[in-house]
Design a protein around this nucleic acid. Sequence first.
RNA 1: GCGGGUGUUGCUUAGUGGUAAAGCUCCAGCCUUCCAAGCUGGUCACGCGGGUUCGAUUCCCGCCACCCGCUCCA
Length: 522
Amino acid sequence: MQNDNSTKISLDILTGLCKRRGFIFQSSEIYGGLNGFWDYGPLGTELKNNLRDAWWQDMVRSPPVGPDGEVVNILGLDSSIIQNPRVWEASGHVGGFNDPMSDCRESKSRYRADHLVVYLPQSGDGHGFACLTGNEADAEKRIRKQAKADPSAYKVIPFPELPAADLARIWGPDATGPGTLTEPRQFNLMFKTFIGAASGEDNLAYLRPETAQGIFTNYKHVVDTMRVKLPFGIAQIGKSFRNEVTPRNFIFRSREFEQMELEWFCHPDEAQKWYDFWVAERLKWWESLGIRADYLQRRDHDPDELAHYSTACADVEYRYGFTDPEYGELEGVAHRGDYDLTQHQTFSGTKLEYFDQETNTRVLPHVIEPSSGLTRGVLVLLNEAYREEFVPKGETEGGPIEAIPGSQPPEGYEKRVVMRFAPRLAPVKVAVFPLLKNRPELVEKAKAIHADLRRDWAVDYDQTGAIGRRYRRQDEIGTPFCVTIDFDSLEDDTVTVRERDSMHQERVAIADLRAWLHNKGL
RNA sequence: GCGGGUGUUGCUUAGUGGUAAAGCUCCAGCCUUCCAAGCUGGUCACGCGGGUUCGAUUCCCGCCACCCGCUCCA
């Protein structure tokens, strides 16, 4: 990716800033860390909570107007992370990911171990040959050619029953020599845990790999208690856990992550209409947060990549710097049909049909699922916000000049790093400074304004060092406004409000400050 | 999971078989009337565990984490 993009930044820079400024730390770092887990520091927590709250506000409390011009109805839920293990049998998560696999180091092929059989010499010595069940002729051919022996001198056993010590003398199906197959390994998507103090297989449980199933299992409760009519939605935000084979790319793919999921229940005849609506709506929502439109795209899944439960799926993708090709998933909007409710109806024996009073008919609703990664959203916000700029030394006339990340400023300029978060999402909204810290009257007034503003917003107070340094500190954590109390403030009760992006300053009466900030998007 | 690379303070680097230096950051004081100024002082590091050795941050082994590629990916 050598193109155009002067603002492309590396994950190294972002990871460094997140650590340096208290956004995101490696989990349990003092013990050497843990692959695939991350902790959110004070500012990362604020940022993540702000994104979470924006989603909740815009999806649950004040959702968009539907395609018919009617306000849609969406209700909130918070189901437990650990659920009856049968939930995951019904959902298809148990079973689908439990097959032991063996890799060939030479051919890079991966085989399901229960699909392989091994020809072993009756004599006990010499090479053995593995093949896929159904391809026995292939193995026998190789016995004649490679071992110059008759297949009848061999016994056939299932690959999983082969002692690990014998792997060294086995030829893989696609290998040109022995000893290339790895010991069969279990790939378990779900984290296992045990309920109760005594552990054993009979009290096995799982940490949920998605929040969606908790919605389906509560669907009937919501229908019965909340006087809802089709169509309606149930929304949930929470942690999910997946034993990813390869956690990579900072918080993009981690083993513990957070989802914001909506399950939209509707009449089967209307499902396509709602699918189209939600795909478009979700793309618009990310743009409304200030994400550059040319960094977002809709990608419809090909029929052959659809999951078993899904009849259509479209992703909202973002142009991360590291995903290949170029764009990577941020949110998936899936048309799940009636798969989930059918499964849970079958497995639980509980009727999950919706009874329509007006038409006197029963129907199993179809489901459209916009499911986005909250923690992936945080990564997108960080990536979108990061800028390096050149500023003339000692003054701000003309404002900052956008720079290529990692480049050095020309003579007379210095670099500033600024996080251009939308005010709504910024972890700190306002910082309050006395111009000088050794003038008690300035300090006192600044502290009073700080104490007042913090009733409404996350507000920093800083009196350390030169004023310019304090501005730059706030730039780097993305604080949109800084308020400075100077000697004029003591005379006329006005303050300087300095804007992060333009670095412009404006004189505002203290009495108007709260309203002024509100008008700027806080 | 495979292959390659990396690991000294918050960051960037220096260095050594005798437990570590510098710049920036950070903290305190002085100073400072709006964009990382200056002066003085200060805190903080050899990823973890073994081995060799009188002594290991340095040499050896194992592990862990991170980065790149492959693989995988609801």
